[in-house]
Design a protein around this nucleic acid. Structure first.
Lengths: 338, 338
DNA sequence: TCAATTTCTGAAAGCGCTCTCATTGAAGCG
DNA sequence: CGCTTCAATGAGAGCGCTTTCAGAAATTGA
């Protein structure tokens, strides 16, 4: 720290105006005469003035900061989500504050508390499955909250129909004649997205007169390793499934890999469907049949929603984005005839 | 906003102590007698008190916030990096403020300015390749700065030897008898990691008496699509390379996919090497030979370094983490004999 | 037992900015 | 030409907390 920090009053002195004027030059430039504005800007420039965010936040009550809490940073999906949040927010002058909870509800509550304490003007969370106490904290807080992926009636949210995603995946398999399908899912507790996707798939099967018994549902970590383990377990059953749904693409990709490692040909020996439609899925061989979830769009809309909640006080508070099945090469008719 | 915000003085009143005491209960609890502390905590709890971060930051001069600027959020590598930054920082009570610049130097400068304005106590950046003006801004600022991946002499940094990474990749190919290798790289401007990796590979080839001419280096976006385009371009040359290095795994994986799409067998028809060793690489078929970069470790060390710079003022300021070649199944002897 | 410490707590002065309110000319109007 | 209206600026009171300085109470030592 070489020089004493340049503050607003220094700029004011140099420009020969009052501090109030300098403040206005920053936040409401159109209130000033062109000449004054120019003078103040020159002074600020010359001194290398950088406004103190904490002081601004304290005095104005707004931090121009939005907090986002995702399950984990280390995920293609949430990375893209954050990317799109951040770029959308940046357009409106907001900065993203990021936290993750690693699938631990207590950590999430802690993160909410911390973001609120840090003065986040708004909060963006993933899913609606959290302890009542956290929900209360969110409702109590003065900051607008937007839920994503899954919503709750009394919160603003940007959702996709996760149940339908599972439904579409399974329905596609039914249409191909599959009756015995297995599922590799992530941990179901504290994760409404996973539960919904599973439930949707089950619903589709049921409507077709089939079931997905619990023992053909394998709950794993959301990782390639988890996916392979889950897939292996399903394939080792006495009557292995003819098709597998991974509730996220990552899991499905791992299934693809496990199948190949076992010298099974996808899709002739085994059909595989994912959900998400990550970049990689289109590029695999075979390319992955999956349900497209508009991840980037979710981020963009969520960002726009908080900002609008913040600035207009009001907004369309429930947005459900469309999803669709993307049929590629990892699925085929049951019984091996492609 | 239902209730008026609970403030420190409210807690003080309820606990029957002075505001100063409440403040101490928060930040230096051991200065208080057990009884007082307990009383204050009870009051805070009862009122649901959440300290105002902006006020704390203003009064104390520290925001307990660390800013990180990555090229892009939407990348396996940086996602893991941020993940590890965030969890390490969280341990010490710091919060991560994230920005990305999308390969735009001006955006990066802007991000630095913004993070500084937001009162970030420290900054973590990727690479050292940026305009002098940005570097000056960083040096001037009172906040400690840690560079990662690539360093600069007058900054604290956590690096890996990117040049050596390229070198190791190429050397491996040389040992397998490859003389004609192609490279798919990311954009080289404003990206010292990419340049270093390319330079290292060239160096290894040169030492073996070969060259990598410019027309066998294909510069692409860091995406699967880019990698495939780059790979296709190299394979369409009159004398296509017998091996390809992707300067990041993502690019190498795309090459693997492009090769398969062209019915080339990897590694017999074409050897492919990546750099990074992302999760996926081990699970592919064929699994990817690559150079392991300890991404998570970089994040952890960088986080520890800023914190220590911040709290002890001093620290070991240059750390270079080891990297190593990981030989898997995507490389074989030149000429097709595995 | 009394001075010398050591603990614990309170008073109060800011931290750097925003924003309401007041003030001052200048412009507009009949 | 006197009065209102408006645009441009200044004065000053906080925003909610930290922290220095001091004083009061408890502890110690001889």
């Amino acid at each position: 720290m070489v020089a004493r920090k340049v503050k607003l009053s220094d700029v004011a002195r140099r420009a020969g105006v009052s501090p109030a004027t300098v403040s206005r030059a920053i936040s409401q430039p159109d209130l000033l005469s062109a000449a004054t504005l120019k003078r103040v800007r020159a002074a600020a420039q010359a001194l290398g003035y950088v406004p103190d965010g904490a002081a601004r936040a304290l005095a104005s009550g707004r931090s121009m900061t939005i907090g986002a809490i995702v399950p984990t940073l280390d995920s293609t999906i949430f990375a893209r989500f954050l990317q799109s949040l951040q770029s959308t927010l940046a357009r409106d002058g907001y900065q993203l504050l990021v936290a993750s909870h690693e699938m631990n509800p207590a950590a999430e509550t802690e993160a909410v508390r911390m973001l609120l304490a840090r003065g986040a003007d708004g909060l963006i969370l993933v899913g609606a499955d959290r302890p009542r106490s956290t929900l209360d904290l969110l409702r109590t807080g003065s900051a607008p909250v937007v839920l994503t992926w899954c919503g709750a009636p009394d919160f603003a949210c940007v959702t996709v129909d996760n149940e339908r995603a599972g439904y579409l995946a399974a329905q596609h398999l039914v249409e191909l004649g599959h009756a015995r399908i297995g599922m590799v899912t992530g941990r179901l507790s504290f994760n409404d997205r996973q539960r919904a996707r599973l439930a949707g798939a089950r619903q589709a099967m049921r409507e077709a007169g089939h079931e997905i018994p619990d023992w053909r549902v394998n709950e794993q970590d959301l990782s390639l390793a988890g996916g392979r383990i889950g897939c292996a377990a399903l394939l080792q059953l006495d009557t292995p499934p003819t098709a597998i749904i991974g509730t996220i693409d990552l899991l499905a990709i791992a299934c693809l890999q496990e199948a190949r490692a076992r010298r099974l040909t996808v899709p002739t020996d085994l059909s595989i469907v994912g959900i998400d439609d990550v970049d990689m899925s289109a590029y695999l061989t075979p390319s992955l049949t999956t349900v497209h979830i508009p991840t980037g769009r979710i981020g963009q809309m969520a960002a726009e929603m908080v900002v609008s909640l913040l600035e207009n006080g009001e907004a369309q508070t429930h947005v459900d984005l469309p999803i669709e099945l993307v049929v590629r090469r990892s699925t085929a008719r049951a019984g091996g005839k492609a």
